[in-house]
Design a binder for these strands. Structure first.
Length: 292
DNA sequence: AACAATTCCAACCGCGTCCAT
DNA sequence: CATGGACGCGGTTGGAATTGT
């Protein structure tokens, strides 16, 4: 498209972030919030492009990130969501507070894909591999006549639309695939069906559990911590904060509560970020943080 | 112990979408 | 309505860490 680069890359640093860079970015965002990513590196004194800063914040520095391995329940839910949404990682990630799209995408590509293959399921179509190939060959002719509209993974609205548009024969084929799938991998897919039926409720429950639970390591071997967990005093805004990258430190909460929450968060991320290194750089980080 | 192969994940890249002008 | 800038998303890659020989 001839699109111009997002920023002037001359003289900009690339590659892994250093602790000092993390500190600068974290310090800047916690002090000022996020208004324009393009300006963040300039104002924070970083030789990075805004895009890189945004990614670093979202995938690593964000206080509400949940660390640690995915649980089996999470994996199952990812599989279920992927069967409905396809590779829409950000949409899938929105069902997992504290998880990033990148994290889920990586986990899918490295673990879940293999798990599905071991179960004899096609990671793309979520159908038994052999049967899928059979059906593909059966319906290849009619698919060819409809160029450009082949999308194996669509969300509910798109599925509905597609079903309205496709001929009855194709719907029948889809139903056959569905029933064969149920026969061949009954237990696994039964779970998925159940999850599918309860997905909306499930996601609500999941969110509530996330915000109500004080335990941070129930299913993970490593420490996990949610910013919202430390902000339970601010319950009125917890749901809206779930998908918000901005830490929203400038909300209605009192300064004391914010400082308490910040201290609690720092205590919990000690194992993730080496604050000792930060301290060596600039003394106690808390003392240098200005909460709006 | 040394090397090769594999796994894993942080970060980059390019494109699509949104929105202000 | 057209254009351009900024952001967000998904695909891909580089290299560190781990495992196997």
């Amino acid at each position: 498209m001839g699109r111009q680069p997002c920023c002037d890359k001359v003289g900009l640093k690339r590659g892994p972030w250093t602790i000092e860079e993390d500190h600068k970015l974290l310090n800047f965002i916690l002090s000022n919030g996020i208004h324009c990513w393009r300006m963040v590196p300039k104002l924070a004194g970083l030789l990075r492009c805004g895009k890189s800063c945004r990614l670093r914040w979202i995938n690593y520095l964000r206080p509400d990130l949940k660390r640690g391995a995915f649980t089996e329940d999470e994996e199952d839910q990812i599989i279920q969501l992927h069967s409905r949404l396809g590779n829409r990682w950000s949409k899938i990630a929105s069902h997992f507070p504290g998880r990033t799209d990148n994290e889920i995408k990586n986990h899918w590509n490295t673990r879940i894909k293999k798990r599905l293959k071991l179960l004899g399921l096609d990671p793309v179509s979520h159908k038994p591999i052999d049967k899928t190939e059979e059906i593909i060959s059966i319906s290849a002719e009619e698919e060819e006549t409809k160029s450009g509209d082949i999308k194996s993974n669509v969300d509910d609205d798109l599925i509905k639309k597609e079903n309205e548009e496709v001929p009855a024969e194709k719907v029948q084929v889809q139903e056959e695939v569905k029933s064969m799938t149920m026969d061949d991998t009954a237990s696994l897919l039964n779970n998925y069906e159940m999850l599918c039926g309860n997905l909306e409720m499930g996601s609500i429950l999941f969110n509530n559990q996330e915000t109500n639970t004080t335990s941070t390591t129930s299913n993970c071997s490593t420490s996990s911590f949610s910013w919202e967990e430390s902000n339970n005093y601010n319950s009125s805004s917890s749901s809206s904060n779930n998908n918000n990258n901005n830490p929203s430190l400038c909300a209605s909460s009192s300064l004391q509560h914010q400082e308490d929450a910040l201290q609690q968060w720092m205590d919990n991320v000690d194992s993730i970020i080496s604050w000792d290194c930060f301290n060596q750089l600039e003394g106690n980080p808390l003392s240098s943080w200005k909460i709006i």
